[in-house]
């Protein structure tokens, strides 16, 4: 009661400030919090007439159905493996690039290459999908064009599921390397220049400078990026998977992640209950993982914790 009274007093005192924060508050409440209520559908048997509140409860049947078909495990495995693969490759590439870029001294070379590497961040995944088409499609793709000029048979990439993890990983790294290297370059150049110069004067060679100055500089950034990604361990980048893979059914075993599966179920079979169960499972696991990992990190070194 006292709390409410305090809030009321504060509200009267700072009405303009509250009114300025109100739009974002209402927007978040309506667009993010209210839809969470819909998660109860994960425990209900959806019927269209009943909607969110009128449908009948059916316990854990939706979850059982999701995992009994084997589909639940498959998409969980794919999502986790893709996230780990993409995390390692994209961060490693960005770190290498940022170290090289900070060391390169030819001004125009540096400027132009940086601009080009940053460019993929600015385009939509739709355009990336068009690039995939232009390079890999069977009839007119650039890859088969090149193969033909070497007298080799055309290659139908859509019939080789095993190659797709590499392709997706390559495009992911390609799109994000510029963005991520901006972050790492900021971390490297954020250090006091004098330390670097002193090391150079003391005779530290480039490898010692990387080992003892640059890598320690980017360590906090690496940890932050890792934590952010671990908090999304069960979330797939829907736009990327959808645009790169498209609706090639024979690739689903290798490329289906929770997000693409949920989308497809929603648009085709309309098994709302099971689809919500998948979304609930995804959100809940991510939430628990990030809370636990963050708590552990906080214990080891509070500076690295996200919150």
């Amino acid at each position: 009661m006292k709390y409410l009274k305090n809030f009321g007093a504060e509200f009267r005192k700072n009405k303009p400030l509250f009114s300025m924060i109100a739009p974002a508050f209402i927007l978040t409440l309506v667009l993010s919090y209210i839809p969470m209520v819909g998660l109860i559908l994960a425990f209900k048997e959806w019927n269209f007439a009943g909607g969110v509140f009128g449908s009948k409860w059916n316990g854990l049947a939706n979850f059982r159905f999701l995992f009994a078909s084997g589909k639940g495990w498959l998409i969980t495995r794919n999502t986790i493996l893709y996230n780990l693969l993409n995390l390692v490759t994209s961060q490693a590439l960005a770190i290498v690039l940022s170290i090289f870029i900070t060391e390169i001294r030819a001004k125009y070379f540096k400027k132009i290459t940086q601009s080009l590497i940053f460019l993929p961040y600015f385009i939509s995944w739709v355009l990336v999908g068009i690039f995939v088409f232009a390079i890999f499609n069977y009839e007119t793709g650039m890859l088969n064009n090149l193969r033909a000029s070497f007298g080799k048979e055309p290659y139908n990439i859509y019939q080789v599921p095993g190659i797709w993890p590499f392709l997706i990983c390559a495009f992911n790294s390609w799109k994000w390397s510029g963005y991520n290297s901006v972050i790492y370059i900021a971390a490297i150049t954020g250090v006091d220049q004098e330390i670097y110069e002193a090391a150079a004067i003391d005779g530290a060679n480039i490898f010692q400078r990387i080992r003892h100055i640059m890598l320690p500089c980017i360590r906090p950034t690496v940890v932050t990026m890792l934590l952010l990604q671990i908090g999304r361990i069960l979330r797939g980048d829907f736009e990327m998977f959808y645009q790169i893979v498209g609706s090639n059914g024979q690739l689903y075993d290798m490329t289906d992640v929770i997000d693409t599966y949920v989308f497809r179920s929603l648009t085709t079979s309309s098994n709302i209950g099971m689809t919500t169960a998948a979304a609930f499972y995804q959100s809940a696991v991510c939430f628990i993982v990030i809370i636990v990992v963050n708590a552990i990190v906080k214990k080891i070194d509070a500076d690295y914790a996200l919150f």
Binding site: L39, L266, T275, C286, F287, I290
Partner: peptide, 15 residues
Amino acid sequence: FTTLFNGGLVCTYIF
């Protein structure tokens, strides 16, 4: 909090 937990596509879509 909304970055940690959300209703996901289906709930948002229906809503």
